[in-house]
Design a protein around this nucleic acid. Structure first.
Lengths: 152, 152
DNA sequence: AGAAGTCCTTGGTAGGCACCAACTATTGGT
DNA sequence: ACCAATAGTTGGTGCCTACCAAGGACTTCT
């Protein structure tokens, strides 16, 4: 976005267009903020998955988050050196890793979630509390209906 | 998205995350459909701008849509050979082109807008009419508040 | 006429995302 | 012991978006 655009009404009438625009803006802001914590969006997603679901192998993480296993390697290459996750071989099956969030990882995740809240406030500055809540509810509902067909 | 993901609740609580997910899904679907018409998303945006605002130079189009002038060249390289726009040197300033939609371009744009409607129905299948309308209104409001700060 | 600025174009950079093939180490089944 | 399957890794592809630098053609200002 080099200039402030004055978009054609035809496009502003397209829900998917607005969704994409606002979504990209949010993603970008989130990425910028996380960069200051030394992590990326996928890293945050992995930390969240580990906190919500407990320790897992990389394969499980990939399946859960929809990330290709090979792309997860890069995520681990970020998280492990930072000490945000603990990774050790699963003693019962030494092909697998057993990945768990560390206390530092939890702290970073919480900081990231706070950033997410600020991004929301920034992104939805034009909406009041009720509107933000109903937008969130609508998106969640739409996304839930979308997920099963995500492969199509 | 290789597998059907089961995302952590922590992430589903983030509005920006949902926005991005649904937005990407919509963008992808839109792109797939437009590809069958031989055009891309930017091409559609340019057609819409030309219809809504009338003929313009490439520079004006770029400023209006937030596309870098150099990237607009590729768009024109698509639209001109397809006959969807008519491009001639501006007789009053021969540095500029004067780009206008052709009748074929209008027809293609209308087809694209119909596709957009179908994508919306598909993307928001879980929402009823009222919910879709209010989602659209909320997004529009949020986007309007966002635009002035788009450069930040 | 000369300088400075504008419009378009070419070509290159950079990042993100999604995906795939092939390899090693390890496991379980027979 | 051997074969098939699995977990992780490496290295590579393709696509899309965004951006920047430089140059040729043309205009406007002085």
């Amino acid at each position: 976005m080099t200039e402030v655009p004055q978009l054609p009404p035809s496009l502003l009438g397209i829900t998917a267009f607005l969704l994409s625009k606002v979504g990209i803006a949010g993603r970008r802001r989130m990425g910028d903020r996380l960069r200051e914590h030394g992590i990326g969006l996928w890293d945050m997603a992995v930390l969240a998955a580990l906190r919500d679901f407990g320790p897992a192998s990389q394969r499980e993480l990939g399946a859960r988050l929809g990330i290709d296993p090979s792309d997860l390697v890069a995520v681990m290459d970020t998280l492990v050196p930072l000490g945000l996750v603990e990774r050790e071989r699963d003693p019962e099956d030494r092909r697998r890793y057993r990945v768990a969030v560390s206390p530092e990882g939890l702290a970073t995740l919480e900081a990231a979630l706070r950033e997410a809240g600020e991004v929301r406030d920034d992104l939805l500055a034009a909406l009041d509390e009720d509107e933000r809540a109903s937008l969130h509810a609508l998106l969640r509902k739409a996304y839930a209906g979308l997920e099963p067909r995500a492969r199509a």
